[in-house]
Simulated assay, not measured.
Amino acid sequence: MGGLLTGSIVALVTPMFDDGSIDELSLRRLVDWHVEQGTNAIVAMGTTGESATLTDDEWLRVVQIVVEQAAARIPVIAGTGSSSTAKAIKLTQAVEKFAIAATLCVTPYYNRPSQEGLYQHFAAIAAAATKPVLLYNVPGRTGCDLLPETVIRLANVPRIAGIKEATGKLDRLQTIKVAVSADFLLLSGDDASACDFMLQGGKGVISVTSNVAPKAMAAMCKAAVAGDAALAHKLDASLQGLHETLFVEPSPTPAKWAVAQLHGCSAHLRLPLLPLTAANQPHVRAAMTAAGVL
């Protein structure tokens, strides 16, 4: 599995109509576009896909559509995280009927469990799963930090296959890397530092920027994973504006606006997220131009 889930992995936005319903045709078109642009894998119903505001039926439908449209051309990872261990298990088991490569489980948000609680949470999910499980640590969004020593413990649990580490703290990569097996998948979840993460031994990035500049992100990741620092940094330099401005308002607000500019679909988000403000639209547009996508 590790060899498949490397490089540029898009944390796919979920297109919606202005009434908030899922725009299934635009979703299918985005999947095709990513395949054409060289994206290496897709995360469906990650947090960038607004999983927190979709019903379970909508969530399952989005995963189904992405898997159908990908048609085994590139791997699909399904986001199944929850603050409830029981619900995360339910979602993980529900999605395993589809041809997914793995599930991605974010740390519980709001209830802020201890490190032992986190260990038990992910171990229980893995015990109930039949496909590989990827951990997802993003304390800036969840208020919960999965520390390296807990990741190392979890790396020994059957079916826990890797981690999306989104703190941007590169020292964590080395701490984890030296203590886990070579096939434990180390993925960045922070676009701004992803290039260096890969140059220091990471195998890819689950990326918001890939929603907007998939071809350039795929090229940068290919160079970085291959250890070509000069080329990777050169390619990444043109993407730094996107790495920054796609978070100028709560994600995925800027990314959805940018995708709408490229594909003509709606930029609608579900409350409590709001559309990208007029003041920030020129900044995102400028970053898109700098990245060569406009």
Rank of each mutant, 00 (worst) to 15 (best):
M1Y: 02
M1K: 02
T6K: 15
M16C: 12
D19T: 08
D19W: 08
E24H: 13
L25C: 08
L25S: 14
H34E: 04
H34R: 09
H34S: 06
H34W: 11
E36G: 06
N40E: 10
I42M: 14
T48N: 13
T53L: 01
D57A: 15
W59S: 14
L60C: 13
L60R: 15
R61G: 03
R61H: 13
R61S: 11
V66H: 09
V67D: 10
V67R: 14
Q69K: 15
A72F: 06
I74E: 11
I74T: 12
A78I: 15
G81P: 13
S83R: 14
A86P: 00
K87Y: 09
A88L: 10
I89S: 07
A94L: 11
V95S: 10
V95H: 06
E96A: 15
E96Y: 05
F98T: 09
C105N: 15
P108Q: 07
N111W: 07
R112S: 13
L118E: 04
Y119S: 05
Y119Q: 03
Q120M: 09
A124Q: 10
I125P: 04
A127W: 04
A129F: 03
L134P: 07
P139V: 06
D145H: 12
D145G: 09
V157N: 02
R159H: 13
G162C: 09
K164H: 05
A166P: 07
G168F: 08
K169W: 02
K169H: 14
K169L: 14
D171N: 12
L173A: 02
T175A: 12
K177M: 04
V178I: 10
A182R: 09
F184K: 06
F184R: 07
L186Y: 07
L186W: 04
L187H: 09
D190A: 11
D191Y: 06
D191F: 11
A192C: 04
S193E: 09
S193M: 14
C195K: 00
D196Q: 15
M198S: 01
Q200F: 01
G202R: 01
K203F: 00
N211T: 14
V212W: 01
K215L: 08
A216P: 02
A216H: 08
A219D: 12
K222T: 15
A224W: 00
V225Y: 01
G227W: 00
A229G: 00
H233T: 05
G241P: 02
T245Q: 06
L246Q: 06
L246S: 05
V248L: 12
P254Y: 05
P254C: 05
K256N: 08
W257I: 03
Q261S: 04
L262C: 03
S266C: 04
S266Y: 03
H268T: 15
L269K: 05
R270P: 11
L271H: 10
L273T: 13
L273N: 10
P275V: 09
A278N: 07
A279E: 15
A279Y: 09
N280L: 01
N280T: 05
V284P: 04
R285N: 03
A287C: 03
